[in-house]
């Protein structure tokens, strides 16, 4: 089964929320439809986080905020050698964290 990350589109004003909330922040409507978020976007900002917690088996964890092609922004991990603000990126859904017997999937960004 293909996994996707879902945006929550207000059925009244069309604002797409990520993550979900119960009431639209623009028009206060309570009805939403879900749609997969696009995988392409541009790098808004990033950091190299040194010595992340034990759930991440890397010494340096690269984190980013990306503005997707539909204007929605998302936080994710990043695997890019020389990242630059504004560069085009593409997201893939991969395992991002392992905590005990639990693992989590989320968005990992690569150079487009």
């Amino acid at each position: 089964m293909e996994i996707s990350i879902l945006g929550y589109k207000c059925s009244k004003c069309g604002t797409i929320h990520y993550p979900n909330r119960a009431i639209c922040r623009k028009c206060r409507n309570e009805q939403f439809t879900v749609e997969p978020l696009p995988d392409k976007g541009k790098l808004l900002t990033f950091t190299h986080l040194y010595n992340p917690s034990g759930d991440f088996d890397v010494a340096i964890l690269d984190l980013a905020i990306v503005e997707l092609s539909n204007g929605v922004r998302i936080t994710g991990q990043m695997k890019i050698d020389k990242p630059e603000i504004g560069m085009k990126v593409v997201g893939k859904i991969e395992k991002v964290r392992k905590s005990g017997f639990q693992s989590f999937k989320g968005m990992v960004f690569y150079k487009a």
């Binding site: 900002t45 990033f46 950091t47 984190l63 980013a64 994710g76 964290r97």
Partner: peptide
């Protein structure tokens, strides 16, 4: 931080501050 949209990625307060500072 937000459990599903931030915490699962390993986001910490220093990392939020790092991304903010770069901008």
């Amino acid at each position: 931080a937000h459990p599903l949209a931030e915490q699962i990625y390993g986001v910490t307060l220093p990392s939020m501050a790092g991304m903010f500072t770069r901008l």
